[in-house]
Amino acid sequence: MSFFRLAARSVARPRLVLAPRVATALPQRSRVLQYAAYSASAGLSKGDITARVIDVLKGFEKVDPAKLTETSRFSEDLGLDSLDAVEVVMAVEEEFAIEIPDEEADEIKTVQQAIDYIAKTPEAH
């Protein structure tokens, strides 16, 4: 949700600003520039990813924030069952605007594994 709003905003605003200056002669070029500016913001730092993954988990009522660390295991440390884990991984997908294939999603069972997956996924925002 937030990603779509963000994406829509970053595309819509420059167009409004650029339109009068670039005029009608170079509509193609302004589109290229917008794309470049958009993808440049995709680089995520490990610290950034960690903070956002932890934030996603804090959004779950079952999760005790006091027990939540980078090394927490979903089931043993946070008391989540396998269905909860599916919800957590899907919330992480939403946060970073990606879709994790079933096979790989099944393997994410700790906070660290979620962070590592995002870190190695260039599409993550």
């Binding site: 949700m1 937030s2 934030d55 959004g59 779950f60 009522e61 079952k62 909860d84 919800e87 919330a91």
Partner: peptide, 10 residues
């Protein structure tokens, strides 16, 4: 069983 309590800013 409220599950995920969504951030209102999202």
């Amino acid at each position: 069983n409220r599950g995920r309590v969504r951030n209102t800013s999202q």
